[in-house]
Each structure stands twice: as C-alpha cells, then as structure tokens.
Design a protein around this nucleic acid. Structure first.
Lengths: 238, 238
DNA sequence: ATAGAATTCAAACGAGCGTTTGAATTAGGC
DNA sequence: GCCTAATTCAAACGCTCGTTTGAATTCTAT
C-alpha cells in the first residue's frame, strides 16, 4: 500500500510532482477515451505520458483511483458551474416560472464550454465522459452517481417547475432520456459511422452538435405526458 | 488455428455440439452484459456455461468472434423484422405519406418483442446491445456498422418522407439522438441510479419504458429544424 | 553543506489472460 | 464392430497485466 498522495514539507503544492501528475492525467484522459478503462494498460499509459511505470501507483495508488481523478478534474468544476448557472437563472426569474429551455441550456452550456476549451479537456474529455456513462464497472457507476447527485437533484426540481404537466416519475424518465442522447452523442467520434455520410458532409463540431441537440431535447421534454389509462398500443398481436 | 466450425458428416446440424454452443452463447450474453467484453474472462465464461475452457476456441475460434456471434444471433433477426415491418407499413400506406409515429414504432416494436421474450434473449440482450453501442473497441464498432447498415438506410429514407421539414443532414443527427436515448435507456440496469428513487417507485419494465420513450422521441423528431441563419445563442459571454 | 523527505527508476512479483496442444472420449456411416 | 471424424478435456504455453520493492536520485528546509 503506497502513500497515495504524500504532501511536501510545507511547500506551495507539488512543485515537481505536479508535472508528473498532470502528464499522467492528460495521457489517461486521452487513452481511456480511446480504448476504455479495461483495455488501457498502465504500461502504454505511462509510456505515452513519458513517466515511469510506478508513477501511477505512487501518485494515485491504483488504476481505479487514477480513473476517478481523471473524471473529477473536469467533472467537478463543470457540475459546480451548472449549479451556479441554474441558481443565477432562478434568481433572475424572481419567482416567475422558468422556461424549460432556460433550464436545459444552463445544463448544456458548461458542457459546451468544456468542448471549446482544449485546456479543460476539450472534446476528448466529453467523449470520455460519454463512455463512462455506459461503462458497466461498478466503481465507475458508484463514482458517477456521487458526482452527479447534487446537480441532478437541483435540476430535477427546476425542470419539475418548468414542466408542470409532468409527474415526478415521468420527468425522471425524461431526464434519463436526455442524459442518454447527450452522453451517446458526446461519446461519438469520427469513427462512429452508424449513420454514414454525416462526417463527410459536415465537420464534427461540438458547438453545432449541441445546437442541434437542444431543440430535439426541448421538444421531447415538452411532449405531453403519457396518460396511464390510454397507453400507446405498440404491439398489435403477439 | 482450430477449425472454427467443423461440420459433421452429413447429419442434421450439430446434434451434440449445439448444446455446447448454445450454452456458451447464453453464458456469454449474460456475462458480457454484466461486465463488458474486456472484463469477462473465458475462464469465468466457460465455468458459468459448464463447458470446457477450450470449447470457446474450438467452436468459435476467438473471443472476439464469440462476441460477434452473441450479437448476431439476436440482432440479425431483429433488424430483419424491422425491415419487414417497415415495408408492411409502407405497403399499407399505398404511397400516402407515412406518419413519423408509424415509422418509429416499426423500429421499436421488434426491440420490445425481444424484451418480452426470454427465449430470444429478453432484457439481457437489449442491455448488452446498449453497452455495445458505447464500446470503443474497433472490432465492435465495425461489426455494428455492418449489421445496421441496411436497416438504417431504409429507415432514414422513410423518416425523410415522414418528416419533410428536415434536411437529410438534420435527420441524420436526430436519428443519432434517437439511437442514443434508446441504447442508453436499454443499457440501464437496476444498478443505474443516477436518477434515484425511480427504481423504488416503479419496477423496471421494458414495455412501460418504451411507451414512455416513444412520445419523447416523436416530439424530438417532429421539432422544427434549426435555421442556419438564426442559430441558438447558447453562450452569452465567455 | 547536510539531513531528511519526496520522487523517480529498473526490476521483479504473482496472478490471470487468450490460446494451443495432444491425448482421451464420443458418435455416426459402413 | 470397426473406422473415422467430431468433440471434450486437462494441462500447459507465452504473454501482459497491476502492483510492489528497494535502491538511486532530486529537492528543500535548516
């Protein structure tokens, strides 16, 4: 069991090791995104980062902790900004009902800002995040739940007020769909060509992407609730 | 290099080995779903299936081929049924414009039927499929592209006619969002509690799930197209 | 300058992986 | 009943994995 984050005597913070740690985090962000968690070996990772193999265990303890650190570095500020933005919009409305668009945009804007800012991970990080959403590993799922709990709670309340025709249960499902479309879309790389010719026609552009996604999601959220008595007849015969 | 699918003399087809192959496929479907491709070892898989370790390589050649076989077994019939259903709806319309709902339901119904039918993989398979959509492994992405090419092409044309206000490009994006919400939702297990209290309130029910998803997707698909000249102002300042 | 802590490094550890092998076993056509 | 091909099996191969170790090195406070 190595000391997982040894602190210097009394110095600022990690003058020399900061470089090593950052190099590891950067390489990890890129490789985890490209190959996933299991398929990325610490040997290829440390080679790409230009550090010694043992550096990961020295600075982070285990590979799993490293993965969480990669996510935390970007995700925590992003979710904090989402919360701040939502509170700003709510203050601005002064009790009046918020529009669904306003709430949704408060959620999307921090993601968009990250996509634009290479220094904060850029598209790479968002794609990694999209992958993480769908990863079956329990430690990833637990971690994400924790990271999102506060933000999701606040947004659920806000959407509930903006979409009074939806029950709490209906809204929960719709937010699930929203996160699905968002994460799947963010996870897409140029290699994803299930729907061909797209990448040929227009360059992959995360800003344009979110601008196309937003109207789709707003319309979906605003759709009338499914009345329990009049269920959709999906299957005629069996 | 083992013979990857040796045929008996002239006998029906794989009288004895069919059992072994099926047991492997069933165990693989369940384990790949639960842990993902990389994290599932052939040793745990063959133990769960009650067959010898070497049986996978004997019957399938490699682990990757086994994974593809797991998907093909269910996916190929499902997509064939989707195509059949779409053609039926189109014949029924006799040239009249199809509604967006009709096209979407033709796409969802075969998935719903599988979810209901444990003998065809049931919910397990759909969740595995949802995971596979988000897997970064190139051999999985290539395989899925191939499996979906024909079906996606036909549905894109159908949606294009049902949604004349959308350009081909816009539609491509929206189908992307649809697949995202669908696969993410299908991949969800009870362990997924990003949005808590859901599983507590209502039992996980794939039929109800698709009935909630459909209105959301229909509304999203029907949403007005984004006019290029009047882009959404997502970010005010930077 | 020096003591002591923090960090880097090369090397190794034990475990688990996918796959291969060759003998033992089973089943079907004659 | 025998021959042959298909299948099962236990064992091993070679490799890569995440992690640990202990010595060498670098840095910093005194």
């Amino acid at each position: 069991m190595a000391a997982s984050r040894p602190a210097r005597k009394g110095v600022a913070i990690d003058a020399t090791s900061a470089d090593t740690k950052t190099r590891i985090l950067d390489a990890a962000e890129s490789l985890f995104m490209e190959h996933g968690f299991e398929a990325t070996s610490l040997r290829s990772l440390t080679t790409a980062a230009g550090v010694n193999l043992a550096a990961v265990n020295y600075h982070f303890g285990t590979k799993e902790v490293l993965f969480q650190a990669v996510l935390t570095r970007r995700l925590d500020p992003m979710n904090q900004e989402r919360i701040k933005l939502l509170k700003g919009v709510e203050r601005e409305a002064q009790g009046r009902a918020l529009s669904c668009e306003k709430v949704l945009f408060a959620m999307l804007i921090p993601a968009l800002k990250i996509a634009r800012d290479e220094k904060r991970g850029g598209k790479n990080f968002l794609r990694l995040l999209g992958r993480a959403y769908a990863d079956p590993a329990p430690f990833i799922r637990h971690f994400l739940s924790g990271q999102y709990a506060e933000m999701i709670g606040l947004y659920k309340e806000a959407f509930l007020k903006a979409l009074p025709h939806l029950s709490r249960q209906e809204l929960t499902w719709r937010l699930h769909f929203v996160m699905g479309a968002l994460s799947y879309t963010l996870a897409g790389t140029d290699a994803v060509k299930l729907f061909a010719q797209m990448t040929a026609v227009e360059k992959y552009d995360d800003e344009l992407l979110l601008q196309r996604l937003a109207p789709f999601l707003v319309a979906g959220l605003k759709a009338p609730a499914l009345a329990d008595s009049r269920k959709l007849e999906l299957v005629s015969g069996d």
